[in-house]
Structures are given as C-alpha cells and as structure tokens.
Design a protein around this nucleic acid. Structure first.
Lengths: 216, 216
DNA sequence: AAATAAAATTAGACAAGACTAATTTTATTT
DNA sequence: AAATAAAATTAGTCTTGTCTAATTTTATTT
C-alpha cells in the first residue's frame, strides 16, 4: 500500500479533519512533530497520488480515496487496541503505541478476521468508534465533561487524549469508560472542576482534564 | 531496538548459521535478495554495533548479543504465525508474509503475553520450534523425507520451505504436519520419490520436494 | 496603508539503505 | 605458478524522508 510516513500523514490529516477549521501545513507539522518544510514535501507527494487536495484557501482535504485509506488505518488501530486489552491483558495506558505499529500491517483480510475474532466491537478501549469494513462507524462522542451543567451526572464514554500520562492519571483516580461522574462545582477563577467519582469523594480537576473526558 | 533492515539481516544471518559452513557476504546477499555491496555496508554497521563479528577466514558470526536479538525476532515470528493460524483462521500458506511484518513490533512484554495467550506452543504451524523467553527451544527437526530408507514410513514434522507455492502444493497433496508418508521407491535416474500419503494412492515427487519435508 | 508577525515555500544538506560499475582480493583451474 | 573465475570491496549514485536556513507570501497590528 503506502509507506509508513504516507500512512502517518493520512492518519494525521484525518484526525485534524474531525476538528473544525482548515488544515494547514503548520497544523500537520505540529500534529506529527515534524518540520513544516517536510510537510510541504509530503503534501506534494500525497497530492500527486490523489490522496489529498491542497488549496491555499481551503487547506488540505482528503480525497474520497484518501479518506478511505485513512479510515482503514484507523480501523486497524482501534481493532488492535481491543485485541491488546482484551486478549493480551494490557492496561489502557499501554496499548496506544503498540497499536500505532500494528496499524500499518497491511493484509487483505487481516482487519476483517481480527474484527470477527474480537466479536465485532463497536468501540475501542478509549471509547472511539471502530470503523466497519465499509468505512461506516458509530458517531464519536463529543460532549466534554467540562461542558456539562453544574450538578448534572454523566458517564465517561471516551477519552480524547490517549497519552499514557493522562490515562495513568485516570487509572489513579479510578476513572474508566462507564465511570459515573457528577459535576459538583465549576471554579470560575480558572475553570477547575470539582467532581464526584462514582458517588464517592470530591476531587478537583483542571479544565484541560475536563476537556479530554467525553461523556454521555 | 533496531531498524527493519538491521533486524532482517540479523534474522538472515541466524538462519544461515543453522546450516553448515561459513557465512559469506554473498550468501547473505542471496538470502535477502540484496546486492553484495549493500551487505558489506551492513556488515560494517552491525559489527560496529557489536551484533556480529566478521573475519574473512571465519565469515560472519553472531555475537552473544546478536544471537539473543535474532532469536527474539524468530520467537516473535513463530508466535504470530500460531496466532494467525489458530485464532484468525488463516491457512498455513498465508501466514508467513504477515508474520514477517508482525515480528518487527517491539514491546517489552508483547511476545510473552502472546505466548501465554496461545498456551505456550512449542512449535509453529510449519513445525519450527518456538524459542522461549530465555532463548531456549526444542531441537529443530532435521531428517528429510529424501534421506529416509526405501520402504520406511514416517510422519511429517516440519517443512523447510515456507513459500506459499510449496505450501499450496502440499495442501493439494493433502499433506500437513502429522501426515503419514511411506517412501515406496526412489527413482535412481533423478532421485524422484514415489510416496504413499496416509496409506493412500502413490504419488511421485521431486528430490527438491523430499529435501523440504522434515520427518520424524 | 505601512509595519510586523506568522505561515508557507524553496533550496540545499543529510542519513539510511539500497543500487551499479570498477577494482582488488581470494580461490580455483589448468 | 600462471591464468582465470569468483568473491569482496570501494567509490559513487539514487530515493525517501527528514532537517535548517533563507525567502516569499499571507495575515495581523498599529
């Protein structure tokens, strides 16, 4: 299929496309930790391969083919995450980096077989929907904990940040997918959140924290 | 750990070291389908990293560290092959190339977890012994079908060639690990073998075929 | 609108790992 | 032992994907 780099660019562009606003070379560079000059080169390459279109006004956009390829990579990543957690017993803070490598293994039927073996999971261990073979997937969760009304109660549906720093912090706080959280108070000074985890003790977390928890 | 190329060289050298005779740059080049000039470069690189030693007289040898690393790659390859066959339902002619990619995924505990998940298999689907975490493994099978006495009966223990061309041929002949074969006759003209598969009809196969079947 | 800042782009360099062609070294014949 | 063949090595090139530094373009301030 494509080189490792090409796939990583496709994935980065796909992820950026989920947010709003146009996708600039600088944004891609930041997302991949690369230099913008390198990104310009790769934009040229992927454009020639008809996987993206680049227009100074509109920014970078995936073509239908590019989108299809990007979604396949995401599909593989998320399926492997389920495998690592459920079958091999990893914790959710350990699986991202390994899946980052596994996702590039390309075989006609591998993802489909893995999906079947795992029982056609809908969501990965971080709460992200797993694309089906046809590219369709459940709608991602989008409401953040920080956006909830004071006093309301919700359940953790997904995490935005999948860094092990964040996930280990959640582990320490006893928060996982499905954990019930009540938003007790918003501190107006710095938008900190006072929350109650599973009806237990009150804890204060930062706004950044609240922005990275998606609830339902 | 190492680059993809470095790992592939280590693996190739390991495989060649199982045979007899010294390991020359040319042999490595043939084994990887590379140019000898490229091999010379990599020999220099791996020597600097103390993974191999190269002496014109003795040829290439793995250092203790190089051997350890090579065995780990082989371990990962063979464990993934078991996974692909037993858990994902691939046939044995389809798994080699995928395992060739999976084997390079490096994680502290991945191979150990996979091994446990698979129930600590001793042999892979081609009959090759799977190295344990400490590097030890069962002795590989070494007696070829071609080396058997006329009239004797044996069981297929392993295959030397893991190309899908060979494995598909075996599939067509209904030969797998454990299949009983009787060596009915050796044709002296070209060393062809007349065999009886599972006590059934007689079939003639080439010497090359007989050299690639290991029996017990 | 001019000045300034930010973003995008170009030009040129570099490392890895492959190649070809030429040369040197080693091995094998005659 | 000389001639020849084979293997090993060197030298130089190429591609991929990155980088830095310099320049140009676009956006934002004042």
């Amino acid at each position: 299929m494509y080189t490792l780099s090409e796939e990583n660019y496709l994935k980065a562009i796909y992820r950026l496309a989920l947010g709003e606003g146009k996708i600039t070379p600088t944004a891609i560079a930041e997302s991949l930790g690369n230099n913008p000059a390198s990104v310009v080169d790769m934009i040229r390459k992927l454009s020639e391969k008809q996987l993206i279109e680049y227009d100074k006004k509109k920014g970078v956009e995936l073509t239908p083919q590019g989108l299809k390829d990007a979604v396949l990579i995401v599909r593989r990543h998320r399926l492997w995450e389920v495998f690592l957690l459920e079958k091999l017993g990893y914790h959710w803070d350990e699986i991202h980096d390994i899946a980052e490598e596994l996702e590039h293994i390309n075989d006609e039927t591998l993802a489909d077989r893995l999906e079947k073996f795992l029982g056609f999971p809908e969501y990965d261990p971080h709460g992200d929907p797993i694309p089906k073979a046809n590219g369709k997937m459940a709608k991602p969760y989008s409401v953040t904990l920080a956006a909830m009304k004071t006093g309301s109660t919700c359940q953790v549906a997904a995490v935005r940040d999948t860094s092990s720093a964040f996930l280990q912090y959640l582990l320490k706080l006893n928060i996982g997918i499905g954990t019930q959280i009540q938003l007790v108070e918003k501190i107006t000074f710095d938008n900190s959140l006072v929350i109650s985890i599973n009806g237990k003790e009150h804890t204060t977390v930062s706004q950044k924290f609240g922005d990275n928890i998606l609830v339902e």
